[in-house]
C-alpha cells in the first residue's frame, strides 16, 4: 500500500475510533455491561470470602478486561442502524475494514483505560512486587487481550439486527460461557479432562496466563504461545466480523 494511502487508511480508523469514543463510551448499556457488571462480579468473588485474592486477582483482572473491551463493539452497529447514521457512515470514503478496525480500536482503548486503573489499584492493594519485565508483560498482554476481546465484541455486532438490546443479549450469551470455561476462578493446572480442553478454547485463558506471569511470576502456558494465540483469535474475529458485516451491510437500513 502506498504511504499516502496507508496514512489515509490509518487516519480513517482513528476518526471512526474517535467518533465511537465520543458517542458510545457513556451509553448506559456500555456502562452497565462493560463496567458495573464486572465490578459487581469482582466484588462478589472478593468480598466476604476466604479466597486468596493475591492469587485470584490476575484472573479477575482478565475478566474485567474481557467485559470492558467487548462491551463497546456489540452496541455500535445496531445503534447506528437504528439512529439512521450508518448509511451516512457508509457514504464516507471509508471501507468496511476501516469501520471494523475503528470500532475495534475504540473498544480496545476503553478496555485499556479502565483496566490500567484496575491493575494499578489491584497491584497496590494486594502488594505485588512487580519487576520492569513484569510490567512490560502485563502491558503487552493487556493490549493484545483488549484488542482480541474488542474484536469479539465487533463480531457479535455483525448480525443484521438494528435492535441494540437483542445484540447485547446475544453478546452476553456468548460472553458468560467464555468466562466460566476460562481459567479465571480455577488455575488451569488444576483443571482436568474436558474442563482443561474447554479452558484452552477460550481466549481469556491466555490473558489470565499473561497476567499470572506478570503479577505472580509463574505460568502454566508459555508466554509467547499465549500472545500468539491471542493474536490468532484477534485475526479470526476480525476476518469473521468482516465476512458477516459485508453480508449484512444493508440489512436494517
Amino acid at each position: 500500500m502506498p504511504r499516502d494511502a496507508l496514512l489515509s487508511y490509518l487516519r480513517s480508523i482513528a476518526l471512526i475510533a474517535e467518533k465511537d469514543m465520543r458517542i458510545y463510551y457513556t451509553k448506559p448499556p456500555v456502562l452497565m455491561f462493560g463496567f458495573l457488571f464486572p465490578l459487581f462480579m469482582f466484588l462478589s468473588f472478593s468480598l466476604g470470602r476466604s479466597a486468596d485474592l493475591h492469587t485470584l486477582f490476575p484472573g479477575l483482572a482478565a475478566m474485567f478486561v474481557f467485559f470492558v473491551a467487548s462491551s463497546v463493539g456489540p452496541l455500535i452497529t445496531p445503534w447506528e442502524k437504528r439512529a439512521g447514521t450508518y448509511e451516512r457512515l457508509l457514504s464516507f470514503p471509508v471501507t468496511v475494514n476501516t469501520l471494523i478496525l475503528g470500532d475495534v480500536v475504540a473498544g480496545m482503548l476503553y478496555g485499556i483505560f479502565i483496566n490500567v486503573i484496575i491493575l494499578a489499584v489491584g497491584m497496590a492493594a494486594f502488594g505485588y512486587s512487580v519487576s520492569f519485565t513484569g510490567v512490560l508483560i502485563i502491558a503487552i498482554s493487556l493490549v493484545l487481550g483488549a484488542f482480541c476481546f474488542s474484536a469479539l465484541g465487533v463480531l457479535l455486532a455483525s448480525p443484521a439486527s438494528k435492535n441494540p438490546p437483542n445484540v447485547m443479549l446475544l453478546s452476553n450469551l456468548v460472553r458468560f460461557p467464555l468466562i466460566f470455561i476460562s481459567g479465571i476462578f480455577v488455575p488451569i493446572a488444576s483443571l482436568q479432562g474436558i474442563a482443561r480442553v474447554a479452558a484452552y478454547c477460550s481466549p481469556i485463558t491466555y490473558l489470565v496466563n499473561g497476567f499470572d506471569l506478570g503479577l505472580l511470576g509463574s505460568t502454566a502456558i508459555p508466554l509467547l504461545f499465549s500472545w500468539t494465540v491471542l493474536i490468532g483469535f484477534s485475526v479470526g474475529f476480525v476476518l469473521l466480523a468482516r465476512t458477516f458485516l459485508r453480508r449484512n451491510l444493508m440489512k436494517g437500513l
Binding site: 439512529a83 447514521t85 451516512r88
Partner: peptide, 12 residues
C-alpha cells in the same frame, strides 16, 4: 451525499 435514511449524530 445525503442518503434518504440518514441522520446526524445527535450526541455531537
Amino acid at each position: 451525499i445525503i442518503p434518504e435514511m440518514s441522520n446526524v449524530y445527535i450526541e455531537l
